[in-house]
């Protein structure tokens, strides 16, 4: 076990790549349907990258390629310089590249606390007490520590998403991927989740966020990727994307959503 830990840490320490994630010429084809074409971008430690674009443009697929829920059909994705298709300790990679879903995906058969400890005890082999203390720390951070005994179906959407974020954080990820974390929420609950994400960004967590919340992208992102029809049309600072977009497709999209 400690060997496995050292393995990643040693890898971090000696890594030649300044990027946590490096996406090179990635393409994804489902059957005859080309969903991603020649995607290139990097994620550095502490960056918050927001991915925007209309529905069906391939944002979720791209995110899912990064944590290997999907396998890219061409190109390569590197985690600290290591091809994610050849990673030796795959479960550990998954804990390092966490994911928060639109539909929360809390485990229905467990209470809030168990949701946040099961991965720690079973995947990271932490002691029960340690896992519990850690879970409560992160539940506190998202303002949900009073709900440790609640079942997912007893919570509101906003509360569920906050627990889902705590569950992901409890694994101590290096990067957290968010796939439209507020899209399934009632409008009055969007704010509570975005606030937490803002705080996480401020605390230096590296984040890759697919979102329709343009305000969040503008205020929080260090970079914004605009995607259309499976390609990254523009990759720039939020100032440039929102006030001075270069591409016509970006302008059209922003005109529609702003």
């Amino acid at each position: 076990m400690s060997n496995q830990d050292n393995y990643i840490q040693a890898d971090n320490a000696t890594n030649e790549s300044p990027y946590i994630i490096k996406v090179e010429h990635v393409g994804k084809v489902f059957g005859t349907n080309t969903v991603l074409t020649d995607i290139n971008f990097n994620v550095k430690s502490g960056e918050v990258i927001c991915i925007i674009g209309s529905s069906g443009s391939g944002k979720s697929t791209l995110l899912r390629c990064v944590n290997k829920f999907e396998t890219a059909t061409s190109g390569a994705i590197y985690y600290h310089g290591e091809d994610i298709n050849k990673i030796k300790n795959f479960p550990l990679f998954r804990t390092k590249v966490g994911m928060v879903f639109q539909s929360f995906n809390l485990f229905n058969n467990m209470d809030v606390l168990k949701n946040c400890t099961i991965g720690q005890t079973k995947v990271l082999h932490r002691k029960k007490e340690e896992a519990k203390a850690n879970a409560i720390k992160y539940l506190d951070l998202v303002g949900m520590s009073a709900y440790v005994n609640a079942r997912p179906n007893q919570l509101s959407g906003g509360q569920k998403q906050r627990v889902a974020i705590a569950r992901a954080l409890a694994m101590e990820p290096e990067v957290l991927l968010f796939d439209e974390p507020t899209s399934a929420l009632d409008p009055e609950m969007v704010g509570e989740v975005l606030d937490i994400m803002r705080n996480l960004a401020k605390s230096g967590l590296t984040m890759l966020v697919v979102t329709h919340e343009m305000g969040f992208a503008r205020d929080v992102a260090s970079r914004v990727l605009f995607m259309d029809k499976g390609v990254i049309v523009e990759d720039d600072t939020p100032e440039n994307i929102f006030t001075n977009p270069k591409e016509d497709r970006t302008k059209e999209f922003l005109k529609r959503v702003l």
């Binding site: 944590n67 998954r94 879903f101 539909s103 929360f104 995906n105 485990f107 058969n109 995947v123 694994m171």
Partner: peptide, 27 residues
């Protein structure tokens, strides 16, 4: 069982066996 239950488990590093044992089979 909702596909999201599997993905929620896999996203925190559970393998297939753990996903089935702790999350899917109980439901």
């Amino acid at each position: 069982i909702d596909k999201g239950q599997f993905e929620g488990a896999e996203a925190i590093g559970m393998n297939h066996f753990q996903t089935m044992l702790y999350v899917v089979i109980p439901q």
